[in-house]
Simulated scan of single mutants.
Amino acid sequence: MTDKKAADKLKGKAKEATGKLTGDRRKEAEGKADQAKAKAEGAVGATGERAKGVKDSLTDDDKR
Rank of each mutant, 00 (worst) to 15 (best):
M1K: 12
R50W: 13
K32P: 01
K15P: 14
A33D: 04
K37S: 08
K37F: 15
V44I: 10
K52Y: 06
G12T: 05
E28T: 15
K55V: 03
A7M: 07
K11H: 02
K39T: 11
T22N: 10
E41K: 08
M1S: 14
Q35W: 02
A6M: 13
K9P: 02
D24A: 09
G19T: 02
G12R: 10
R50G: 06
T18D: 11
K9M: 12
D62T: 13
M1E: 03
D3P: 05
A33I: 06
K32H: 04
A17L: 10
K4F: 13
G23K: 02
K63S: 06
A46D: 13
G53V: 12
E30Y: 04
G48V: 08
K20P: 15
E16N: 05
T47L: 11
D24K: 11
L10W: 12
K20M: 09
A36N: 11
K55G: 00
K15N: 03
S57L: 12
K52Q: 15
D62A: 09
G53C: 10
G45V: 06
G42D: 00
D8H: 06
M1R: 08
D60I: 02
T18F: 13
A46E: 03
D61V: 14
E16F: 01
K20E: 04
A38M: 11
A33H: 05
K5D: 13
K32E: 09
L58Q: 12
G42W: 00
K4I: 05
T2R: 08
K20V: 11
K27N: 10
